[in-house]
Amino acid sequence: MSDTFFSGAPHWTWFIILYFFVGGIAGGACFLAAVVDWFGGPEDRPVVRTGYSVAAWGAILSGALLTIDLGRPLRFWHMLFQSANVPALMFKGWSPISFGAWAILLFGLFAVLSALGGAAEEGRLHNPALRAVGGVVQGGLAKVVGGVAGLLGIFIAGYTGILLSVTNRPIWADSPWLGALFVASGASTGAAALILLAPGRGATEQSLARLSAFDTKALVVELLVLVLFVASLGSVNRVWIGFWGLVLLVGVVGLGIVAPLRLHLQRRPLASAAKLVLLGGFLLRVATILASEGIERYRVAAGM
């Protein structure tokens, strides 16, 4: 039996699952937006602007979810500053929650700036202060800010998996692949969110087709990493015999990866494939987190 079965469950449940899902989408969409911002053409601007908006709102929502999940929400700032020694910073480079707290703050900052730049570009900002900020984040500066946001974004999508691995819990600490898996899922769900939302901001058929072609590849990578993840679990895989295994197999692999892959390849309507990808990304977080959360140490010790 893996030694991980003697640890305690941290009660990371729905707020954290939602955060991992939203953070993945926001991070993935931001990363793709930045790539398109740097290397795409002028006709791709709607995709770029949508991506930065998704990133900004996602970062804000992520911060809110993380804060309300705390046992003492008003002390959220203890992760950023040494509470008894303000203004000394609190930072532990080897603790994913610690560097994650900083990353989400910086990601939020750069994503909001990029989103304001994008909104100003469209002339959608009416508040003078916001318009002034958005007006500054244009041209070369916008590219740099967006690039930083994109790099932070892919980090946000993936560090949540590393965070789970840097514990002593069953499944999470039994495989080194969760971070890589969440990166891939962040990319696929980020692309899906763009496919669904970018048409509202005037994205061309061509940009959407490219996104869907990328999403197809991201799904293949995700499936590959998922197989490696399960293979690396070895004997721990017996935890999947049950409800969460079913969710993983039917929900994540079947509905979330294989079905949209088929739709993409058959060139069916992009939106339905994208919705399935989002569902799969959500169920991936649900299954990986709750399967481990449900393992109670005293039952293991008692041989139940």
């Binding site: 640890s7 469950a9 941290p10 009660h11 046992g71 003492r72 929400p73 203890h78």
Partner: peptide, 11 residues
């Protein structure tokens, strides 16, 4: 000082 993030529980 603790804000109840619960990282230590899993660690």
């Amino acid at each position: 000082v603790c804000n109840g993030c619960r990282a230590c529980i899993a660690a």
